[in-house]
Structure formats: structure tokens, C-alpha cells
Simulated assay, not measured.
Amino acid sequence: MQVPQYPVHFISGLPRSGSTLLSAILKQNQRFSAGMSSPVASLFNAVLPKMSGASEYAPFFDEGHRHRVLNSLFGAYHHDAIESGKFVFDTNRTWTAKLSLLHELFPRARVICCVREVSWVIDSVEQLIRRNPTHVSEMFQSKSARNVYGRVKDLMDSERGLIGLPWGSLREAWFGEHADKLIFLRYESLVRDPVNVMARLYDFLGEAHFKHDFNNVEFSEDEFDRRLGMPGLHTVKRKVEQRFRSTLLPPDIFMKYADMNFWENDKLNMKKVAVL
């Protein structure tokens, strides 16, 4: 049984770095299907342990079985888009930690990594928190997250932090053997020059150019955001443009994370990763 090769690319990267904005832009193209984080990566995480390792069912699965099950999960979730002939962009921040798996299942797929200066990612999360003072977000699990210093420590935790975990996965992918699958898309570039950045992205994906309307981009997932305790988390402003403001962070925090933008260092780009 041959595993079908679905028309798919993936969107990953850091939070608050433009992945929802990118999906909202891509959705304007009727050939594409895109949205906020999908559950496909979580489904993979739930099923894989049952097919391998110490699971009692592991002996019943060979490599072919595992590939077919995972591929079927993907095809079932995105069934409507695939049946209508659309190219799927599946979004999840964990995909950069699964490049070997994506390479086996979807060898022609690229992974678009949305990135932003880390200090401003932290600032953006803090801005949302202060904008919603009557909500308690589920993204903070530590009891020490009662002020900005505790919250930042929680955010930057390398094992479970909203920013620290995907940042580590990005570095793993950047220096890994499948770095040629990556396209790093800087939030700063996208909002400053969306026309040229999207044209270059289409070129890297091998897709025909499309005239997007960057003055009428809309996307929201209000119910999801409310349940997370972070209203406005996935709301996209109508016009794509660069906005300037001062940081909300104490200067010591802002400066502490100012040098974590490794994709800006040409000397570290040994694999020649595409950076837009």
C-alpha cells in the first residue's frame, strides 16, 4: 500500500511572531487552506507512543504501519481541504522539533518558521496580559508568575515555556540535518514590506504569485482565546503595517534576551537556511 503524498507545507516558529497573520494572508488565496494552530501534531504525539517503544501494541506495528496511520490522521483532519483541491498549510509550534518525521511523511513539504526579536515576543505576551487583567491565562503554570519577572521566567523555560520551548526547537531545526526544509520568515519583514516578502515566499514554495489585499486581512478565534484566558491572542488587525511603540518590559529583561535572535547572525547560517 503506497502512502499518499498530500499537498502540504507547515507553519511553525515562535508565538506572537506572525503565524496567525501569515495564515490569514494565505487564506486570501482560494488555492490554500490555512488557519491557527491545528491539533494534528497533538494527534501524532498521542498515537506514536501506542505504536512504538514500550507499548504492548508495539509488536503489531512496523515502519509501514506507522507511516500509514500518521498519514491517515493528517488526511482525515484536512479531508475537506484536500478533497477540494487546496494546498494545506498546517500550523503548530512543535513541528520544528519533528523535522525527521515530516521529512519521512512529507518529503516535499517546507516548514515556514515565523520568528521575531525574542524581547519583542516577550513584550507582546506581556501586553496581552495587561490588556486582560480580569483573566487568568492557562499559559502560565507556575505560581511564581505573579509579576513580570516570574512570568518571563515561566515563558522562557526550555522544557515547557511558551517561548523557551519553541525557541529551542527552532535552534535544533536550524542546525539539524533537515535545515534545507526551513524558511525563516521574520515578523519585522512581513509587516514592513508584505508585498515583496510574500512574493519571495511564493518563489521559495514554487507557487504562482497571488495578489493579496494587505489592507483587508482578517482573522479571529474569539472562543478559543477566551477559553485560554487570553482574549485577542489570535485576532489579526485588518491592515498589515509596521507599528511603533515603546516596550512594556523593564530594561534589564529586554536587554537580557536581546541576543537570542540567532537567525540574524549570518555566521551561524552554515546550512544556508532561507531567511525572509
Rank of each mutant, 00 (worst) to 15 (best):
K267Y: 00
L102P: 05
P107H: 04
K27Q: 09
L21K: 03
V195C: 06
I112E: 14
S38T: 14
D193W: 10
E218A: 11
I82T: 04
Y6D: 14
D123I: 06
C114T: 13
F89W: 08
P133R: 07
P39V: 02
S52M: 12
L170M: 15
L70S: 13
F219E: 07
K27D: 01
L43W: 10
K27V: 11
P166W: 03
D90T: 02
S12A: 14
R131K: 13
R31A: 14
E126S: 04
S246W: 13
V47E: 08
F175P: 01
M139L: 11
H209G: 15
W263V: 05
F244E: 13
P59H: 00
R31P: 02
M255C: 10
F32N: 15
S23I: 04
R108F: 10
F204S: 15
L162D: 06
V69Q: 01
S100F: 00
M51P: 12
F210Q: 02
F244P: 00
G150C: 07
Q141H: 14
A54D: 15
L73Y: 00
L185E: 05
R146G: 08
V118N: 09
G53C: 11
E117V: 04
R200E: 14
D157R: 06
L102I: 04
R243K: 08
E159H: 11
L128P: 01
V136A: 00
G176H: 06
A24T: 07
M255T: 11
D157H: 13
D154G: 10
P166N: 08
L26I: 01
I183H: 04
A173T: 10
V40Q: 00
L70Y: 02
K181G: 03
K211R: 14
F32I: 15
S137A: 10
A34T: 01
W95L: 08
V121C: 03
K181C: 00
T20P: 09
H65M: 10
D62E: 06
I129Q: 10
L249Y: 08
L248Y: 06
A258C: 01
S72T: 15
P251D: 15
S142D: 13
I82C: 07
K256T: 11
F204M: 11
P39G: 00
Q5R: 06
M156K: 08
G164M: 05
Q28G: 05
D193R: 14
E188W: 09
S137Y: 02
L233R: 03
G53A: 03
N269A: 05
V236E: 06
V88S: 05
R110M: 14
A76L: 13
P59C: 07
G35H: 10
V121G: 07
H135N: 07
L190M: 09
H178C: 00
R131F: 10
S37V: 13
T96F: 12
R146P: 05
P49C: 00
K86R: 14
W174M: 01
H178L: 04
N261M: 03
L73F: 05
A109G: 07
R130L: 14
I82K: 02
L165I: 00
N71M: 08
Q242Y: 13
F254T: 14
